[in-house]
Every structure is written in C-alpha cells, then in structure tokens.
Design a protein around this nucleic acid. Structure first.
Lengths: 121, 121
DNA sequence: AATACTATATGCATGTTGCAAATAGTTGAG
DNA sequence: CTCAACTATTTGCAACATGCATATAGTATT
C-alpha cells in the first residue's frame, strides 16, 4: 500500500472529489464523453444522489488538464460535437490510489459504526 | 430507515462534516470540552488524519447554536476556563440520522470497490 | 416554427476547511 | 522570578468544491 500517496489525497480531500474516482473507473471500463458519463453515473450502483452536470464536466476538464484522462473532440454523424475521454496510464495509477483511499475510508466508517453500535446496546 | 432525513444530510454534505458525527458520538459516551475532544478524536479508532483544532471548535459552536449539544462554561480548579459540552435529546436523534447516512455511504464505497475489483481481475 | 433532446461551459453565491495568529490562564524548569 | 510549555478557545483569511442557474449550440421531432 502506497501510504504516502494516500496521504496526499487525504490532505486535500475529504470525500468531496469522490466523483473523480467514479469517473476514472467508468473511463477504465470504456472511453466515454461527459453526457454519457452522467447517464452511466446515474445508472451505476455506486451513486447516491443525482449527479450535477456542471460538477461532472468540471471534474473531467480538471483531470484532463492534470493528465489523468485525455480528451479528443469528436464531430459525430449526429448531434453536437462532443469530447471523448480516455483513461491515461497516469489516470490508471491514480485510480489505484483512489481505491486504497476508499478502502481506508470504508474502514473508518466501519469503525465509527462499530463504536456507535457498541455503545447503543 | 428515515430516508427523508438522510436525504436532507445528503443534500448539503458529502463527507465533509463527518467530524460532527464523531463529536456527537464522543459526547454521547461522555460530556467533554473541546480540548479533550480533540485528544479523544486523535486516540479514537475512527480517525484518519490529525484533526484541526479550529475545525473542532467551530463545529462544536455550530452544533451548540443548532441545539444538538449544549455548553456550560466551567472555571475549573486549574487551567483556563473551558466549555463543557453535553449531548441534547435533539443531538441524540441527529446522531441516529448520521449513523443511517454513514451506513449508506459505506454501502456506496463497497459498491465502488466491488465494481473496481470486478473489473480488475 | 417551436419544442425537446444532446452536449458542454461558465458565473456566482454558499459552505467548509486548514493554517496562522491572537488571547489568556496555569504549571514547571532554571 | 522569568521564560517556556501546556491547557483552552476564538477569529481571520485564502483556497477550494459544490449546486443552481444560465448561456450556447447543434440536431431531431412535431
């Protein structure tokens, strides 16, 4: 476990940018564009509330700039142009860090719930 | 499960105010003041990084104002004055909602990890 | 021509955090 | 006695992420 990198995430994030992890995973499964990712997010098992489109587009642009994903403008046969995103090698590594971080967060929640239940019975 | 109330939390929080849940639980276990709560948080099983004092004090004041906890100024035999916090009935209810919310978040993380592992093997 | 759907981007107010710094009483070391 | 360290709380500020609303624009349907 690369605890150093998990620490880096810990530093600036709580659970806020969880959407990034979701997007990276979806893009690992298959390249996609923003609009489609929004639909896939709303279908996926790991969603809670309806996602906000602006948040998705903004996070995609950020990850693009940071090199985790790369985009390519597509003028399809129909509909407006769209930006097709693909996961990069760097993004794949980042997803691993995310997974480690999420494991830790899950443990944290479990510890909380254990303490909560222990005290409630 | 009171999904309406869990929804309310969902609305404005991601995982940011998780510290509130931790504080409510600690105060349910026993009344405490801010400085002590910081130490208890750093000892507790459900902590991740070192907690920031300002964040603790601010959240305590907020929850005080909102009626989830109530404070009482104490001039001890030694050391500077301190604010002793106790959990209120309303706070106890709120903690239940938090626990429900945390269960949901935990499931969300598990679903993510399941999808991640499924795709990685 | 009007409406709906696909598709992306941006502005703005709001809320939370971390760090730093201010304040202040108490205790212990030299 | 004085300086440092510890207990204890508060406030200011910049940074950041989000949600909602809005703008833009191409395409398809009625």
């Amino acid at each position: 476990m690369d605890n150093e990198k998990v620490k880096e995430l810990e530093f600036s994030l709580s659970m806020e940018r969880f959407i990034q992890a979701e997007l990276l995973l979806l893009l690992k499964q298959k390249p996609s564009h923003g609009y489609e990712l929004i639909q896939r997010l709303n279908d996926s098992e790991f969603k809670s509330a309806e996602v906000d489109a602006a948040t998705v587009y903004r996070n995609l642009r950020r990850m693009d700039k940071e090199g985790m994903i790369k985009s390519q403008w597509e003028v399809g046969e129909s509909g407006p142009g769209r930006r097709l995103y693909k996961l990069t090698a760097q993004g794949e590594e980042h997803l691993i860090v995310w997974a480690q971080y999420i494991v830790q967060q899950k443990i944290k929640l479990e510890n909380f719930l254990a303490a909560y239940l222990r005290f409630n019975q």
